[in-house]
């Protein structure tokens, strides 16, 4: 231990003390800065929020004057208007949303968003994608389609989610492509966007049920029952013996909302096989019109395992 001299020990202690002081200072600085930012925002909020709200609910003859006031604001204040409009647009629809977009326009939000869509930072490109979905300025669809092919999956995901607000064929096409297994976009996010596109996506959903990629079939099957698009019921029945378990399960659950008589024999077979699909199949049968399913439910009652009987809503007393 000859190297462990008083000098070395003093140095170790001094370095430790220095690091500790630095860390404590960093804590205090972080907290002070955060509080200062919050306080600046709160002050801006006090002035800006009433103006944005007034412009959103104003009568037509007052709107121009209020928008002129927004245009006359300083750079920091207009930036705050943009943040406020952006946050409010997530919760507002209809005419109020249109007026909010006008307020955002007056604060220069669109040029800012367009610039951000080409920024090097993925987080800012994702911001831009979300804003394009909410603001829907001219040319937004093309930009979103481009962002839906961004190299960063998180940006693609936000862009696909934003495309849910568009019903144009190219938007539907992009969203369906994002259902593919290797798209890097969560299947749930793409399927939710497809659902948001509504019946505009109906035809493409029907075709997607026969897509070679299991992810596309699964996403389409999950949405099909909720969309109730014409002609999808029979195709869903076709998916009940799909090779992919998750596709089968999605089809079974969709049929609960979109009953098809032809599905009953296949569902009964699945229920009695007691695989992972068994309970779902039994629940779907229980939700179908009794006229189709009386015989099937009787067979489940007699031959089904308890979990499947429970899913079919069969009472214990009935067994006796």
């Amino acid at each position: 231990m000859s190297w462990l001299t008083d000098g070395v020990m003093q140095a170790v202690l001094l370095i430790t003390a220095g690091i500790t002081l630095g860390m404590l200072a960093s804590l205090v600085v972080q907290r002070t800065l955060r509080r200062r930012r919050a306080s600046v925002r709160a002050r801006l909020d006090e002035r800006i929020r009433p103006l944005v709200l007034a412009a959103t609910v104003a009568e037509d003859d007052e709107t121009d004057a209020l928008l002129a006031r927004v245009r006359a604001l300083g750079a920091d204040e207009r930036a705050h208007v943009r943040r406020t409009v952006f946050a409010m647009l997530r919760d507002v629809t209809g005419e109020a949303a249109d007026r909010l977009r006008a307020v955002g326009d007056a604060a220069g939000i669109v040029p800012r968003v367009l610039a951000l869509s080409e920024d090097r930072s993925p987080a800012l490109r994702a911001d831009a994608a979300e804003a394009l979905g909410l603001l829907q300025p001219p040319g937004a669809l093309a930009l979103l389609c481009r962002l839906a092919e961004d190299p960063v999956p998180a940006v693609r995901t936000v862009a696909i989610r934003a495309l849910g607000a568009y019903t144009e064929p190219e938007a539907v096409e992009r969203v369906i492509a994002a259902l593919a297994t290797d798209s890097g976009v969560p299947n749930n996010a793409a399927a939710s966007a497809l659902l948001q596109q509504g019946l505009a996506a109906g035809d493409r959903v029907r075709l997607a049920l026969e897509h070679p990629d299991a992810g596309v079939r699964r996403g389409a099957a999950r949405v099909a029952g909720l969309l109730q698009a014409p002609g999808v019921g029979e195709r869903l029945v076709g998916l009940l013996d799909d090779d992919d378990e998750s596709v089968r399960l999605a089809a079974i659950r969709s049929l609960e909302r979109l009953p098809v008589a032809a599905a009953v024999p296949v569902l009964l077979e699945a229920a009695l096989a007691d695989g992972r699909d068994g309970e779902a199949a039994a629940a779907t049968l229980a939700a179908m019109p009794p006229a189709w399913t009386t015989g099937a439910l009787a067979r489940i009652e007699a031959q089904g395992v308890p979990a499947v009987r429970r899913a079919a809503g069969i009472a214990r007393e009935a067994l006796a």
Binding site: A123, A126, A154, R161, N188, A189, L195, L226
Partner: peptide, 19 residues
Amino acid sequence: LRESDHTGREAMAASPLSP
């Protein structure tokens, strides 16, 4: 934190497709 604004939590809260 960088991605926290884009988690899609709101969409998930409203989606009938959530597990």
